[in-house]
């Protein structure tokens, strides 16, 4: 499946390989040598990154975050999906249908 689709709650997301990942002052930072790009996911982005180390449905990811943080479900959904779409555009995550 291509990475050109929009993120929805039913999709499965997981980390893409090939990045050097480190923690810096509580924030998750990554370096992709092939692309010559440096990424800072911040503190909460780092939590999301670790949660998708194994393939996880976006719905499950949102539910997990809502159980850990003081945030409304709708706000969490919108912001997490927006963040995941940026990760997808940079090729940092893989996106699959539940059935694939």
């Amino acid at each position: 499946m291509s990475n050109k689709q929009a993120i929805s709650l039913k999709l499965i997301v997981s980390q893409s390989a090939g990045n050097l990942v480190s923690d810096m002052d509580g924030e998750k930072v990554m370096l992709n040598i092939d692309k010559g790009k440096y990424y800072n996911l911040g503190q909460l982005g780092g939590v999301i990154w670790e949660l998708v180390e194994q393939p996880m449905a976006v719905q499950e990811l949102v539910s997990t975050l809502c159980s850990l943080y003081q945030v409304e479900q709708s706000e969490c959904e919108n912001q997490v999906i927006e963040f995941l779409e940026k990760l997808m555009q940079e090729g940092l995550i893989q996106v699959k249908n539940f059935s694939s």
Binding site: K37, Y39, G45, F83
Partner: peptide, 18 residues
């Protein structure tokens, strides 16, 4: 007790690098 939420953001920088 739940932690405080902050909007997740992705910062992207082009770097020059052997």
């Amino acid at each position: 007790m739940k932690k405080e939420w902050s909007k997740p953001e992705l910062e992207v920088l082009d770097v020059k690098m052997m």
